[in-house]
């Protein structure tokens, strides 16, 4: 549940930054319209494809599939997190993304009186892509037997928290330790991915579900070692985007 809440919350924060940027630079009504259309699209896609993909699938095959999907997400977040913490990549900041997106939109065409399709499209694209990632993470974490309810509860908690942040606008975006959060989520998703993929291949982890804790500890220790080592041999590469 905590892994789902953290992963989904971070994706939602990025979507929120885009919607706020479009709203601040153009019109909030157009930004919200694009965002709502994107959310509907993602929900329909997940409701249509999710059960069809998961129905009648072999349990072991499903665990391997879910494990590999989580490993893809987790390792990518872990890789970026280590590079960011080692100073070899720009730190993650939804606030900076908000400012960049807003400035780009302000520099674009003038706002017209009628429907602002450019603004709607930017909001739609941003929210749809982030929402698709949310959908994939929820399907992956909730697809394992008995895990759907915790994944959905975690998603609900993330939704409430991010909506709360959205209501008090962009100041809290600046204060969140996003780089550390993303590294933590990368560690959690990689641990879950390893656990499920191995169970699908009929591995019995010593101490059962406790394996998730020691797997996360192993990956956290390795990430810390990699950060230390890369920080020591740091080159100035600040221009690499987040």
């Amino acid at each position: 549940m905590a892994a789902a809440a953290a992963a989904v919350g971070i994706e939602m924060l990025e979507a929120l930054a885009i919607v706020l940027a479009v709203g601040a630079a153009r019109r909030f009504s157009d930004a919200l319209l694009g965002a709502v259309a994107a959310i509907l699209g993602v929900v329909l896609l997940c409701l249509g494809l999710g059960p069809a993909l998961l129905a009648d699938a072999d349990l072991h095959f499903l665990r391997v599939l879910i494990g590999c999907l989580l490993l893809l997400f987790g390792l990518e977040w872990l890789r970026k997190g280590v590079l960011r913490m080692a100073g070899q990549r720009r730190r993650s900041s939804s606030y900076e993304e908000f400012v960049e997106e807003r400035d780009e939109l302000l520099a674009a065409d003038e706002i017209i009186d009628g429907p602002d399709w450019a603004a709607r499209l930017v909001a739609f694209k941003g929210v749809f892509l982030e929402g698709l990632e949310v959908g994939l993470i929820v399907l992956a974490l909730g697809g394992a037997p008995g895990k759907l309810t915790p994944a959905l509860v975690g998603t609900g908690i993330a939704l409430v928290l991010v909506t709360g942040i959205g209501l008090v606008l962009h100041e809290p975006l600046r204060r969140l330790p996003e780089t550390q959060l993303k590294l933590g989520v990368g560690i959690a998703l990689t641990a879950f991915g390893t656990f499920f993929a191995a169970e699908g291949l009929r591995v019995e982890w010593p101490f059962g579900d406790v394996a998730l804790l020691y797997l996360a500890t192993i990956y956290a220790a390795l990430a810390w070692l990699a950060i230390r080592r890369m920080s020591a041999t740091r080159k100035p590469t600040a221009a690499v985007p987040a």
Partner: peptide, 19 residues
């Protein structure tokens, strides 16, 4: 009993390679 740790080794190698 040991297969999971083979996978852990492969995952760690993947992370090291990607870095």
């Amino acid at each position: 009993r040991a297969g999971g740790f083979v996978l852990v080794g492969c995952v760690v190698a993947t992370l090291a390679l990607s870095l």
